Amino acid sequence: MTAEGRAPDHYQTLGVDYGASREEIEEAYHELARKLHPDVTGDDPELTARYMAVNEAYRILFKATEREDYDRSIGIEEPVEQRSGSTKARVAQSAPDSPAQDMRLLDARLRKTIRESSRLCGKGSYWEATRILEKYLKTHPENAGLRKALAEAALGRKSYHEAVNHMKVACRVEYHDPENFVMLASIYVEAGQLVLAEKALLEALGWNAEHEGALRLRKRIREIRDEEKPSIQKIFGRISRVLKR
């Protein structure tokens, strides 16, 4: 129970809608758990308490039977697939609005927008993906997921400098995630900046020396360098032409 005597709203804790699918709940949980894990936040008691609340919310909402019991306890009777805005409004009657609640709802909308941007990028609509994402930069400037989605859209537009800048923010925010550094390295490779790509891969491999994506990309960089080297035959050909002069 909360300090006001209400059961905690696990949906708000994870920042998902009341009709969220198991996939959306799992995605929200992993994103929050990465940011709030004690290995990242240290001994901050407030963040540790929030991390525990996130784990409890995930435990209840991810398991169908426990979710049904919990939903009934907060006044939700409709099946998940039939829920709508009226469900949210009814549950909200027992929980006054707050800036934190507003931000969690905004987080849920952002996650949906990121999924939509990924779909648009898959269709080649990179400018449209950028447009729907950029409106969240003012409210979520340090959101790694938003920055990665913007980097993907920028890369599709061949705007390498923009893509790199977004990924640098993602790497700073989630510095412990090697995937971010691999994505940054791949952008550098696309831009032909192999030295910078190798530096980013060193960061990734520093977190996980067996990271398959990082190892594959490092191998690809070596292949590119080999392709750029003059062949032995060309070298001998040049020497032969010089000697004949």
Rank of each mutant, 00 (worst) to 15 (best):
K244H: 14
A95Q: 00
P99G: 01
T113E: 07
S118K: 03
A20F: 03
R34C: 01
R119D: 11
F181H: 13
A191N: 15
L150F: 13
H211I: 13
R59S: 08
K234T: 14
H10I: 08
Q82D: 08
S231A: 06
S84K: 07
A197M: 04
R90W: 00
L120D: 06
Q82V: 03
P79F: 12
L133D: 02
R72T: 00
Y126P: 06
K112E: 13
K35G: 09
K135N: 07
P96N: 02
R59N: 07
A57T: 00
V169W: 12
S240W: 09
Y70W: 09
E23S: 04
I132M: 10
S159F: 11
G122S: 11
L133C: 05
E68C: 04
E142F: 12
L47H: 00
D226C: 09
L202Q: 12
A7F: 03
S231V: 07
Q101R: 07
G124I: 03
I25E: 00
M52S: 04
E174S: 13
G42K: 10
L110D: 00
Y58E: 01
P8Q: 00
E26A: 04
G15C: 09
Q12M: 10
T113N: 06
A49P: 05
A204E: 05
A209Y: 08
L196D: 15
E27H: 14
L184M: 13
E78R: 15
E152R: 11
K229V: 09
T130D: 10
Y126F: 15
R172N: 15
S117T: 01
I76S: 01
L105A: 07
A204M: 13
A163R: 03
E4A: 09
